[in-house]
Design a binder for these strands. Structure first.
Lengths: 132, 132
DNA sequence: ACTTGAGCTTCCAGCGGCTGGAACCCTTAT
DNA sequence: ATAAGGGTTCCAGCCGCTGGAAGCTCAAGT
């Protein structure tokens, strides 16, 4: 199948698929006319990458996962190690964002938001107020 | 004061400060020897940007905030609008990450993580299991 | 006076992960 | 015959820095 069909079936734009081939993540066969030719298995792999990316794995991690995916003899512990590390990373990001949210939320709450020029948000950002 | 001192006082690396000047976010005077020369007010602005960036505002948003910061007659509503939009964005990100965390967490929980090759994480990523 | 080292200057290149665009080829339908 | 809608390549740019090279200036030590 052509790249467009593979794109539709995997949920990845054609450009991205070509990019993945460029960086050697996933290669496809070529048809006689020079078009890339994708098998169902190729599409599986593309979708695998699509899911992994959307779960926050980097392309390099996808490369690892993909080789673990293809290797029928790998230990599940290997996979779990990568996923667990990624989980910790997600937790860190959530914590960080939650902190941000709280801080910015306080600033917004305290800003009357009218035509007057005095603004706690600007004051907060400029360090004028010592909050909490 | 020189860029290094301004860097220490603002919490931004010198490289970043030069970059900000490059893109016209913050310009500094020049001393006779060609060195950048920062006033205390410049440092205030740098720190303002540093805080805004660390709160998740993009550089372009910082440019807006900075002009609102400098403009003594702007309405606090203008600032609040930007901050509120950013707050919504942070909330969206948190929600997305929380979703990810949950999904990946399930996968990790169900993976025994030993030497055997069967692995629910890989199965989940490849779409083999229809969960919930 | 000379040297050393730190800090400053500029400019150019690269990171990750695409994405847009130009210029061209191939296929299919009208 | 031709037009539309694929496909192909390659080059450039996005954001927000960051590293490195090559060359200046300055302060301190000998």
């Amino acid at each position: 199948m052509n790249i467009g069909t593979a794109a539709r079936q995997s949920g990845l734009p054609p450009k991205t698929i070509r990019y993945y081939e460029d960086i050697g993540l996933l290669t496809a066969d070529r048809a006689a006319n020079g078009y890339r030719d994708y098998s169902d298995e190729d599409v599986h792999r593309l979708r695998f990458v699509q899911r992994s990316r959307s779960l926050g794995f980097s392309v390099e991690e996808c490369r690892q996962l993909l080789s673990l995916y293809t290797d029928r003899h790998r230990a599940s512990a290997d996979v779990k190690a990568i996923a667990t590390e990624k989980l910790a990373e997600i937790d860190r990001k959530i914590a960080e964002l939650t902190g941000l949210r709280e801080m910015l939320g306080h600033l917004v709450e305290n800003c009357h938001g009218d035509a007057r020029p005095d603004c706690p948000i600007i004051d907060g950002l400029s360090g004028k107020t010592r909050d909490h």
